[in-house]
Design a protein around this nucleic acid. Structure first.
Lengths: 126, 126
DNA sequence: CTTTGATTACGATTATATTCGTAATAATGA
DNA sequence: TCATTATTACGAATATAATCGTAATCAAAG
């Protein structure tokens, strides 16, 4: 049976490519690899292969019109972030969002970020 | 070179055993397996093997005084939760805690949980 | 002491993730 | 056309994770 698309969790390497795609928008392997190689030594075909696997998993969509295929994230950054958080909340926080938030905020959290969170809470209906 | 202990991230199977250990306190393989088998069909030796690997990684400590070794989590739940969150924040939220909190709170978050979070914010110095 | 049962140790198997070399293919321009 | 270059396709190698069967070991009961 085919795995439910929404249940697909990107691996670490896949997530790093998604981050690039969310930032750049649709891009070729070459463009993506250019960014990747600024921070690590991963080879071109490695990036290509990961993108091909991501395509099989429907984590990215691919425009094959031109010789150099153009890849784009299949899901929004927001959607993916939500699913990663939900996963972590269920596996490490007994399903409690507030416990996660309590752990997320610590001495290293800047006053600015705390303010942002305060404003978010103020803007809630509940 | 040996991997930095604090950098060891439990795998999914390992985290599920840690959850049990945090809840039960120190326990034998048999006790742990008993809990595990209420929710899935994992065999006894599988649980044993994972615990042995966790011991090598220093994710658990082991009391070998008796025939049946007694395992306990090496790090607190709090500490582990913090490190898992920091990891997620850096890999999926560009290092921004407030972005994570914003995604964590959604329509499915209960009013109680929101209140808990409000109280946490009120109790902060910043 | 010896048998029986429980436990740990070990190694093999399977699955997934990551990496990259080489081959095949397509496009370009000389 | 044909050689060169860029790109994708394919398959293999390595690493880690997860699983479990079997062997070795130990302890308790008889």
């Amino acid at each position: 049976m085919a795995r439910d698309k929404s249940a697909v969790k990107p691996t670490e390497a896949e997530l790093s490519l998604l981050n690039i795609l969310w930032q750049m928008g649709p891009a070729t392997v070459r463009q993506i690899h250019e960014i990747v190689s600024t921070t690590n030594k991963t080879g071109y075909t490695t990036v290509l292969k990961i993108l091909q696997i991501m395509h099989e998993k429907s984590l990215v969509i691919r425009d094959e019109t031109n010789r150099a295929h153009v890849y784009a994230a299949a899901n929004s950054e927001r959607h993916t972030q939500s699913s990663l958080i939900k996963d972590l909340i269920s596996k490490a926080f007994g399903g409690s969002t507030s416990k996660l938030v309590m752990r997320a905020i610590d001495e290293s959290t800047s006053a600015e970020e705390i303010n942002d969170i305060r404003q978010l809470l103020n803007s809630l209906e509940k």
